[in-house]
Design a protein around this nucleic acid. Sequence first.
RNA 1: GGGGAGAUACCCUAGUGGUCAAAGGGAGCAGACUGUAAAUCUGCCGGCGAAGCCUUCGGAGGUUCAAAUCCUUCUCUCCCCA
Length: 410
Amino acid sequence: MNSNHLLGEILDIQKQMEIIKQGVEEIIPEEELVEKLNKSQETNIPLRIKYGIDPTAADVHIGHMVPVRIMRRFQDLGHIGVIVIGDYTAQIGDPTGRNESRAHLSSEEVKRNSERFMEQLYYVLDKDKTEVRFQSEWFGPMQLSEFISILGKFTMAQIMAHDTFRRRYEEGLPFGLHEMMYPILQAYDSVAIKADVELGATEQKFNILAGRDMQRYFNMPEQVAVLMPILIGTDGVEKMSKSLGNYIAIFDPPEDKYGKIMSIPDELIENYFLYAAFASPQEITTIKDELNKGINPKLIKQKLARKIVELYHDKEAVQKAENHFNTVFTQKKIPDEIPEYKVKPEKIWLVQLLNDAGLVQSNGEGRRMINQGAVSIDGNRISDMNYELVPGNGMVIKVGKRRFCKLLTE
RNA sequence: GGGGAGAUACCCUAGUGGUCAAAGGGAGCAGACUGUAAAUCUGCCGGCGAAGCCUUCGGAGGUUCAAAUCCUUCUCUCCCCA
């Protein structure tokens, strides 16, 4: 069976390039990619498209998905996606920006994290055209002598050309020797898996280009770098990342995805259509027109939210998420499905109840919430910090806009 | 190996014996408003049923009526010299 070039046979190379380039910031060098696509078509050998991830945490957010979407496009054109699980680099931690030395990950943790990771990536990837590889496959058996000879291929000046290394060094921040290994390990991965293309965010440019150097040292065809922009987080300022809490996780329930998208600053709408929703150029033009015409950005954001939620869930979930949003935020009502908490129907101090039900983190916070007028029972605002009540079955307690709880009496 | 500087809350940072649960800023949360979990404004932002008390300024000891602040020591970081 030859399904490799199912689409490739129909589409000429130029058309393929157009598909690939959508939402891509930079291809280095572009002509080489064209050559590779041509050659692949002639020889009927699929290209190997690499994307590396560190299994430090198991949660994937939609920022990670930007390159993964591109990988899917390559897969649809008949190529193989190779996910490299960085079980060695994970112990270093990508030295870009903030970083703490990482705790050593046990092999069980790596396994667990990577399985969970892949589960999320398969929301987008074609499982049949995906290969999952671990760095330990090649770095595990590697001899020190071999590693030292690899190190000899690179110079200090090359490594310090990396802006984040140089800056950290110049600013006198802690800088472990092992951190300089990060690009080198990542570069060697490309040799190990014979990558034709490596995907990554633009911040990965250095590392991916180091892969080209490394392949050249090993007398191998050099990979092409396909770079995507960094997705800005929901705060509209920083790169989307888990540690900053400005992320939309793949495992977030549809309502949360929807709500988080609605909370992005209006200026980010176009950017998200492009990189988070993967809208077509025609759609982007429409959006721009609408924004210029002064249509309520809220409506356009709703469209965006729908589109993104639908990438990861079905239409029904999208509808539910939208209803939830409208109920809770626009109409400020109680949603249909809310957490339940079982209590005894005995007189209890409200603050205690809030704390027990997990609606607040401490009695102090409970007091503050009441003080600030954030707490209501069945729609009646409570402002007395000493308020006591006998819980009734079905009573609904609300704290702030987003915290609800239905009481069930035992 | 020698010399110097430093470690403060979720993050950045001020504080050099009592007036410090610790100033600012950011993040976060709440209220108001709205066009939305945008923007803006205001407030809150260690714990305790709130009285006062308890735990916090890298770790451990010590001085003192009193320590984030002084001393000893340990750990870690940065800079300069070699």
